[in-house]
Write a protein that binds this DNA or RNA. Structure first.
Lengths: 213, 213
DNA sequence: CCGTAAGCACACAGAACGGTGTACATAACA
DNA sequence: TGTTATGTACACCGTTCTGTGTGCTTACGG
């Protein structure tokens, strides 16, 4: 699509072989899963010869690990760096992004690869810990009594919503957000208790914008 | 192990070929995952010829679906049928069983198979809905204001703990149980508010009895 | 004693997988 | 102009996967 310099024989080296591979990974690994996406298909989608792919990555494992490392900026930073929100609002905003994220690739990778020692699994672990830490930081900023506990709890809610969305094929994040609101109100004493009228539709009857297929 | 009638050539037809196949499935699918367990290995573990396996099941897909249907009695009924507990205690007891369950095969199957139309995925969906319904029933029995909401919330906590346990390789159910206690106390007005000293170790520093390797 | 159902052993087909080897083409730079 | 990265095209290797085909063996009921 993007016009790249290319030779008459179909050569496309707009200095983006690696980028195209990773870009195709993002799409295919999430649409089809990691195991069900072969290197042949991936290279075809990236418009890159298989030989080139294996000159950029020593193997599929390394490619998968590298693929996982490309989500931070959009998801993690995108929420926590919003200075226009109060810490408390930032904590709740973490439950509003996932419509963009159909599946949570970290959980998917950990389950599909099934080897805790796999580089991608290790990164998924590190990432989830980092998210919990960021949540804890924000919770501390918001004045929570036990920020670490609240951060871990909110992280669990996010993962629960992701997993449940996947299994039920229905958006579970509103439910998680409702729980989060309760936990935050309970954990931040100075915060105004607000009216407990935040009970939105929690029974999973959402119109499933989850993406898969 | 169990003494079966067997002929001199190693024949074992104690009327349990199908049982042995499903039994081996339970072990291997959970230890190694579904995709990483080949039919050859599975048949070898079940001490069943491959030919026999394919006479009992039309294919691996059917076997996987049937394998998933063998968890209800132990997990679901085991908790909800305990009449020695109050409804409220039963809700909390749902967070104590998972040490037995290393991974939650339903989530695993949904992620691994990656096809919402797969029979096993459909059953996983049904099962998760059934669990939420059972939780809702118990919540209603316990006098919760909005039983459906509480049931869905507790179900999300269980799934979150399962997913997070998997990714972090550390038991996340204590955290989920702590959240559950808060939610239950908030949702059941008549229930004594109790001292809020239920904050056990929620930062995932548990010694990982999760099972996987 | 004989028929039938159930099972076994084993080879094999066909496909997909990850990964490589080889020969050729182009772009950029000297 | 020539060299060196970088990439392509495509065949290919070995492995693993689901699934079959075939022939033989056993248990059991009449």
């Amino acid at each position: 699509m993007t016009e790249l310099e290319k030779g008459p024989t179909g050569r496309r080296r707009g200095r983006g072989a690696r980028e195209r591979i990773l870009s195709a990974s993002q799409q295919l690994f999430r649409e089809q899963g990691i195991n069900r996406t072969g290197m042949d298909q991936l290279c075809a989608a990236a418009q890159v010869s298989k030989r080139t792919a294996y000159q950029h990555f020593t193997g599929k494992d390394e490619l998968v690990a590298e693929y996982l490392r490309r989500f931070d900026p959009s998801v993690l930073s995108g929420v926590f760096d919003r200075t226009d929100l109060t810490p408390r609002e930032r904590l709740l905003a973490a439950f509003d992004i996932p419509p963009t994220t159909p599946l949570c690739p970290y959980i998917g990778a950990a389950v599909e690869l099934h080897d805790p020692q796999h580089p991608a699994s290790q990164y998924a672990r590190d990432y989830k810990k980092a998210v919990a830490a960021r949540l804890a930081d924000t919770a501390r900023e918001a004045g929570a009594a036990d920020p670490e506990q609240l951060g871990e709890q909110l992280a669990l809610l996010i993962d629960g919503a992701a997993a449940r969305t996947r299994v039920l094929n229905a958006d579970a994040f509103p439910t998680a957000a409702a729980i989060a609101a309760v936990l935050i109100d309970n954990a931040i004493p100075t915060s105004s208790p607000r009216q407990p009228s935040d009970d939105r539709g929690t029974t999973g009857s959402a119109p499933v914008p989850v993406g898969g297929q």
